[in-house]
Design a protein around this nucleic acid. Sequence first.
DNA 1: TGTGTTGTCGTAAACGTTTACGGAAAAACG
DNA 2: CGTTTTTCCGTAAACGTTTACGACAACACA
Lengths: 341, 341
Amino acid sequence: MASSIHDLARHLNISIGTVSRALNGRADVNADTRQRVLEAAKKLNYSPNQSGRSLRRGSTYSIAFMLQPHPGDQQYGEPFFIPFLTGLQARLAESGLDLIVVMGAPGDYQQERLRRVVETRRADAVVLAWTRREDERIDYLTEAGFPFATLGRSRSGGTTYPSLDLDFEKAGADAVDRLVARGHRRIAAIRPSLDLNFGYLFLDGYRKALRRHGIEVDPGLIADGFINEAGGYQVTPRVLLAKDRPTAIIFNNDAMALGGCKAMAEMGIRPGQDIAVIVIVDTPLCRYFSPALTGFRPSLEPMGQRLAEMLLASLPAFAGEEGPRIMREVWPLELIARESD
Amino acid sequence: MASSIHDLARHLNISIGTVSRALNGRADVNADTRQRVLEAAKKLNYSPNQSGRSLRRGSTYSIAFMLQPHPGDQQYGEPFFIPFLTGLQARLAESGLDLIVVMGAPGDYQQERLRRVVETRRADAVVLAWTRREDERIDYLTEAGFPFATLGRSRSGGTTYPSLDLDFEKAGADAVDRLVARGHRRIAAIRPSLDLNFGYLFLDGYRKALRRHGIEVDPGLIADGFINEAGGYQVTPRVLLAKDRPTAIIFNNDAMALGGCKAMAEMGIRPGQDIAVIVIVDTPLCRYFSPALTGFRPSLEPMGQRLAEMLLASLPAFAGEEGPRIMREVWPLELIARESD
DNA sequence: TGTGTTGTCGTAAACGTTTACGGAAAAACG
DNA sequence: CGTTTTTCCGTAAACGTTTACGACAACACA
């Protein structure tokens, strides 16, 4: 059905070698014949067979993204990833690469699946998300010498791989600064449990800013929970019932904020009036919630594109001729002030 | 690096043909040699090269899923798809298939991308979501003779492909029944614009139930908007300002409901108190919103698994020996009663 | 013993590319 | 005109599998 390079060669009465060279833009082919080959390719609706090409060239022309459902909540996932994936895939497609998505089984933290991808060599590289502070996936990949990039930082693996992250530390500090400027001194922080790295970064920024303002850090105002609605709902009361009730809460996540606000509502506390609320990673939910939640907005799609570029530049087979590889970028989080603080 | 079938053969001092046959479980190989081959494979950490296998067998061992960001809203996407994808991928992986995700460019409704996937034969089959009433993608695929399955029904393409859908018609009717039983007569409906098929199905159920109760359908109580928060926010006031204000609203979607509730809040109307609210497709958002929204919950992950099964059964290369192909399934939507109605 | 059957395995072709190599013709140069 | 260089193209091998085909030995049966 699909026409092969042999069909083209037969049709034009030339050898398959010449056809291949013409198609691949090699120098040693006559301009005229190249023209004819390209026309015939269009006419016969030719497109190269990926398996043949992959086999010969030894690369699969695809990148694997390890996607995970919410830990602690199989029912729904992270809308966060969709726009990121859009950017990632768009940029990869420009270079003729496909995006393979591998879902992590809840529980095993992807090690098993990752191993399978690497060993069967189904992808040329891997993109990891939700990096942990110490991430065994990163250790495994560096040890195996398999190319990868990460959305999010980690302390594992040194600085040998491209990574792109948001500046959670600054966002945490900015949130505190803003709240302090508005008169708050008792500020709580809700972040994800597990050792998701951005939870640490956020908390570091929060702590440092508090100290800078001469406010001592009260462990009773910090709580960890699952990074979803249930987690926020479950954990927020713990902080609200502290002896000296906080006047402001910073949530690491919109889903946790939603759960937290639910808990408040049940306790008769009105977010935005009785207590200030700020969310670190803004989503449309924040904008349309009542009260509209102040948050920090990431630019997800450009981040996807950028990480794809960084990854591509680190792969010998796809690297252009440009200079030094950019291995590490941290993007700002833009504050969107609304009604909740 | 990765060991090939030749390495195994050399190591065992037998031919590659025998190795391949042993690995693939053919009958014409001595039980003893098969044992030795399997052991050597484990020892040398062998796994077959996908490109070589694909080239020879003529199938790619991967399925493409066409994923789309929200139309009219590039910033975020549909969390709905993540659990579905989890199930889909899990079942495909069982049969050794990969899941390739192709993001639609906003605007072109995927035709271009789809064509590329089909023509380069990068996948053995395609899974479509967000089916439209008349879907050009389905027309294209049937005409091209390319295998596919859909999440959602369509009027295109007859009944020649596996499809799995939710019973939006019944959910629409159930919602009306429930509201009428609680005394409502003026019931509004907010559904997505575009010709997304589930919007039609929902509205059909809604209309029929209304008539069944002897209530005439008021076009002023029906509105279409983008299927996201902004759409709900924009379109809900139109219905609220009808001459005879509705006492209940059914939203087709949690995001639209969120936007709608925002609009209500700004108009001083309290959902759950001044007006009843029901959402057709329930998410965690519905549960943790205040008031908690009554909604209909789908079982997304099992649906993903099931659609994968149906698709597999329709592919000659992967079909088992079981009976007739199941081409069409409609799953129920379970009502979760909460506080908003 | 001759013939047919069965079990096991090696050989080699094929899938669709890419590319190293060499050769023929044309062009350039003395 | 002879030699060298350049331009262009064909040949064939290679990537790692799967599988049709045939070969050979062992065995059964007459």
